[in-house]
Structures are given as C-alpha cells and as structure tokens.
C-alpha cells in the first residue's frame, strides 16, 4: 500500500529533538543505524514527518530520499500521527478464516475510515496488521495495549464505545 502523508502541522518540541539527537548519537556509528534511528524517532514523535526525517538525514549524512525509501518500505513506519486510540486488526490467516474481514469492515464503517487512516477527529486510527500470533483468540484486534479476541462484527460497537 502506498504510504499516506500527513497534512497535520509538525509540532515537535526541543525535548523531542534532544531525544532524537541522543538516539542518533547512540546508533550513529553503527552500520545499520537508520532503521533503529527511525524506530526510536517514531517512539519519540509518534510518526515520521518530513521534519524528523530531514533532521535524521542532515545529522547522519544519509540522503533524505534513502531514509524516506526505508520509511515507506516497512509497514510499521508511519508518516501520519496515529490516533489516540490505535486499533490494529489482525489479518493473519487464522483470523481471516474466522472472519477478521467483516470485523475490519464493521470498524471502518463505524469510524468512517479506510484501513491505514485516522478518523476525522484524530481520535481513532485503524490499521491492518500481520499475524499477532494470538491465533487461539481469532479473530483478534488490539486497541492500544488491550487485546480483544473472538470478536464478531456485532461486538464491535460495544468495544469501541469503551474508548
């Protein structure tokens, strides 16, 4: 899927930049640094907007296009700020054959978003994720840290209402 870019204005703080600098300092000389820096940067900022990637590029000397190439290759890197409530729907095989597709459809319908998007109020973001390994609970979704298993479309509204 082509990565969607954000329209949200960047609001990074000096504290965040200090943390990013520390991460670059920590990994900078490591040959495989870029992925780890991006992972830390996403932890720090919640997503990887151009402002953050540019800082990484200038501080590491790795071309910006290459960093962006890495950021758009891996599905866990996000160019969009996630919603306060991050919903991940497992679309692994076990979940799929047990009806994860309709669950996803229901969630998207209720929130008025497509997979990979954040709801208009910025509250919910919905992503399809690869197998979470909780196949015994299929179909499974996670909402932030919480796991909901054996979910049916009819249960979705009640689950979302908790947030």
């Amino acid at each position: 899927m082509k990565k969607k870019m954000t329209t949200v204005t960047f609001a990074g703080t000096p504290e965040q930049e200090l943390k990013l600098d520390a991460a670059i300092e920590k990994y900078g000389k490591d040959e495989g640094a870029i992925m780890r820096i991006l992972q830390d940067a996403q932890e720090i900022y919640g997503y990887l907007p151009i402002e953050v990637q540019r800082m990484i590029s200038i501080k590491t000397g790795v071309p910006l296009a290459e960093i962006y190439g890495v950021a758009t290759f891996y599905s866990q890197f996000s160019l969009n700020p996630k919603g306060k409530v991050a919903i991940s729907v497992c679309l692994g095989t076990a979940c799929y054959v047990k009806g994860a597709g309709p669950v996803m459809e229901k969630i998207c319908e209720l929130l008025g978003v497509q997979p990979g998007e954040t709801s208009a109020d910025g509250k919910f973001s919905v992503d399809a994720t690869r197998c979470l390994g909780a196949c015994g609970l299929a179909p499974v979704i996670t909402i932030n840290e919480d796991v909901y298993g054996k979910l049916q479309p009819k249960d979705v509204a009640a689950v979302l209402a908790k947030y």
């Binding site: 151009i50 910006l64 296009a65 290459e66 962006y68 758009t72």
Partner: peptide, 21 residues
C-alpha cells in the same frame, strides 16, 4: 554519491522518487 532519488514504497506501489514525493 548523491541519492536525490530512491526506490520508494513497496511491492506494486514501488516507484522512483524523491523524499516525500
């Protein structure tokens, strides 16, 4: 040694371009 362009995105969506298009 410049890298103004790179392969971006993945799979069928892979394309050549600059950072953030």
């Amino acid at each position: 040694g410049i890298g103004a362009i790179s392969a971006l995105d993945r799979g069928f969506d892979t394309h050549i371009g600059s950072a953030f298009e």
